[in-house]
Amino acid sequence: NITYDSTPEDVKTWLQSKGFNPVTVNSLGVLNGAQLFSLNKDELRTVCPEGARVYSQIT
């Protein structure tokens, strides 16, 4: 699982392990844990089509 202390590499690995598509992995894999957790559902949806699914995994 990812935490606020996760590195971008951790986030990328976590996204891949959850089966998100490469677009999602590449879009969000540049963020660290704190940055990812700071995004709300609408912001995640704006960044990638699977944003709502990512949001449900981190809340």
Rank of each mutant, 00 (worst) to 15 (best):
50 E>P: 00
41 K>G: 10
11 V>C: 07
1 N>K: 13
1 N>M: 10
54 V>W: 01
32 N>S: 15
13 T>P: 02
28 L>F: 04
4 Y>N: 07
28 L>Q: 03
11 V>E: 03
7 T>N: 11
41 K>L: 13
19 G>M: 05
39 L>N: 04
51 G>Y: 05
15 L>K: 02
44 L>K: 01
55 Y>T: 05
9 E>T: 12
1 N>V: 06
32 N>C: 07
1 N>G: 07
34 A>W: 09
22 P>Y: 11
48 C>Q: 04
13 T>Q: 14
53 R>C: 09
47 V>F: 04
33 G>H: 02
47 V>I: 15
16 Q>L: 13
35 Q>D: 11
51 G>V: 03
12 K>D: 01
31 L>C: 06
32 N>Y: 00
49 P>N: 07
9 E>W: 06
22 P>E: 15
30 V>H: 15
3 T>I: 01
35 Q>A: 14
29 G>S: 08
9 E>P: 06
49 P>L: 07
38 S>G: 12
57 Q>R: 09
43 E>G: 09
41 K>N: 07
8 P>V: 12
51 G>P: 06
49 P>Q: 10
17 S>V: 13
22 P>G: 15
35 Q>T: 09
14 W>Q: 04
12 K>P: 00
52 A>C: 09
42 D>C: 08
33 G>C: 00
2 I>W: 00
17 S>N: 11
4 Y>Q: 15
57 Q>G: 07
12 K>L: 05
14 W>R: 02
35 Q>I: 02
28 L>Y: 00
35 Q>R: 08
43 E>M: 06
1 N>R: 05
24 T>W: 00
44 L>N: 02
7 T>P: 09
6 S>L: 00
15 L>Y: 01
23 V>C: 09
8 P>K: 09
39 L>A: 10
12 K>R: 12
55 Y>L: 10
43 E>V: 11
44 L>E: 03
54 V>K: 02
22 P>T: 13
30 V>D: 09
56 S>C: 08
1 N>W: 03
15 L>V: 03
16 Q>A: 13
49 P>M: 08
44 L>G: 03
23 V>P: 10
26 N>W: 05
6 S>Y: 01
55 Y>Q: 05
51 G>K: 02
45 R>K: 15
28 L>E: 01
36 L>W: 00
18 K>G: 09
49 P>S: 12
6 S>P: 00
1 N>T: 12
32 N>H: 08
18 K>P: 03
59 T>H: 12
22 P>W: 08
3 T>P: 00
17 S>D: 11
41 K>M: 14
36 L>F: 05
25 V>Y: 03
49 P>V: 09
55 Y>P: 03
58 I>H: 01
2 I>L: 12
5 D>S: 12
32 N>G: 09
5 D>Y: 08
8 P>Y: 03
33 G>L: 00
52 A>T: 13
56 S>P: 05
25 V>T: 08
14 W>S: 03
46 T>V: 13
41 K>A: 14
17 S>W: 13
23 V>E: 15
28 L>S: 01
52 A>M: 15
31 L>S: 02
36 L>N: 01
35 Q>K: 10
46 T>N: 15
50 E>W: 00
27 S>F: 07
13 T>R: 10
39 L>P: 01
43 E>F: 08
56 S>H: 12
31 L>V: 02
21 N>C: 11
16 Q>I: 14
7 T>F: 04
53 R>S: 13
46 T>S: 12
36 L>R: 02
55 Y>V: 06
46 T>M: 12
44 L>C: 06
59 T>R: 08
7 T>Y: 05
2 I>P: 06
16 Q>M: 08
50 E>G: 03
9 E>G: 10
58 I>L: 15
19 G>C: 06
31 L>D: 01
22 P>M: 11
19 G>P: 00
15 L>E: 03
19 G>Y: 02
6 S>R: 00
11 V>F: 01
53 R>A: 12
53 R>V: 12
